[in-house]
Design a protein around this nucleic acid. Structure first.
Lengths: 205, 205
DNA sequence: GTCTATAACCCGATAGAC
DNA sequence: GTCTATCGGGTTATAGAC
């Protein structure tokens, strides 16, 4: 009998090299974007032949699509509370703090490519949409959709300048420092006007 | 004598076709980015031969560099007042309103390409630096540099989502609506905490 | 000054040997 | 399953005719 424990199943072996290819592809897509990422370079980084990459994924678009998927599609797990604007704001800040600490490389691949690749842009849109709806639901004003769009734009602007452009002022700061500065911004956007007006009218008027 | 008025100088003619090429290049760089822009397509859009583009600009990098320059380098003209944070904030909002109304296509070319082209990223950095310093100078807190970086990131995040990604919530809104919503955000970032600290120390201490 | 032809080099994708 | 060879296409850039 052949020892089936030591060298695992054909399918397992395949999944293993597939994962190595995907990891290399994610890294390169995140670093230089879709166009400048070549199948040949991905294969070399993964230690396999270029033909094998094509054999597994068929096309470069499919490779990008698979590489850009977050592991186990864990997105639906992180939901924002929509009860009050304050809760949503804090949850959004906490989510941003996590992303500022270590943004998944698959997300960076999408962000890096979304300005020059329509498939990446579409993936960005569909990934951001449920979150936009959650933010909108927590804001009690008629212009909630625009406010939610601005909050999302701020989050992504900060992440882009920190990770993709490496601007020193944002790249060197700590996540806590950034979210502490952004908290009043977010509260102003989510809570409409200031709760207590300065000069209180008489109680009976 | 040959009539020199009707058909202008050789140099003028050259400048004219050069400008046509640059306009076509700006448009294409802004729409699809550096990599997907080809010399051939630019030449066709400008109504000239591809070889002529190379003859004028020598290399694709030089063509991008020339196309990405704002006309007459009018950047130093728009300076932000650095006297008080309030003045700077309003000026920054006014500048954003103008850009939301019609962002120069040369700027869009840089923004579209900066995530996948190092020359574009470098141009973005050097163009943003003087403005960052002006914003910093108007903020009276020790973390002024980080606050300025966040303000800049917000501005560019909004512009990117509006023009380059075409997200509906930001693309359909009016500039005035957007800056009115962003005003409290910017004030919170620029003005630090509430001006009068609650407990004043004794005068002589 | 303008345009044609082509060189030299990449790429993604395919076919087939082993 | 893995790798080599190659096809067909694209690009920038150059050389040279008109």
């Amino acid at each position: 009998m052949t020892e089936p424990r030591v060298r695992p199943t054909r399918a397992q072996q395949r999944r293993q090299t597939e994962e190595a290819i995907l990891a290399a592809a994610r890294q390169m897509f995140a670093e230089v974007g879709y166009d400048r990422t070549t199948i040949r370079a991905v294969a070399k980084a993964a230690g396999v032949d270029a033909g094998l990459v094509m054999h597994y994924f068929g096309t470069k678009d499919e490779l990008f699509s698979r590489a850009a998927k977050l592991p186990a599609e864990q997105l639906p797990a992180e939901q924002l509370p929509t009860d009050t604007a304050e809760q949503m704001t804090e949850a959004l800040l906490a989510s941003l703090a996590t992303r500022l600490d270590s943004e998944p490389v698959a997300s960076l691949a999408v962000l890096r490519s979304m300005l020059t690749n329509t498939a990446a842009a579409e993936r960005y849109r569909t990934a951001a949409e449920p979150r936009l709806n959650q933010i909108t639901a927590a804001i009690p004003t008629p212009d909630a959709e625009l406010r939610a769009g601005l909050l999302s734009a701020i989050v992504h602007g900060v992440i882009i300048e920190r990770y993709l452009l490496g601007l020193a002022r944002l790249a060197d700061a700590s996540p806590d420092q950034i979210i502490d500065l952004l908290r009043p911004c977010f509260q102003a956007l989510a809570a409409a006007q200031t709760p207590p007006p300065p000069d209180q009218p008489p109680t009976d008027s």
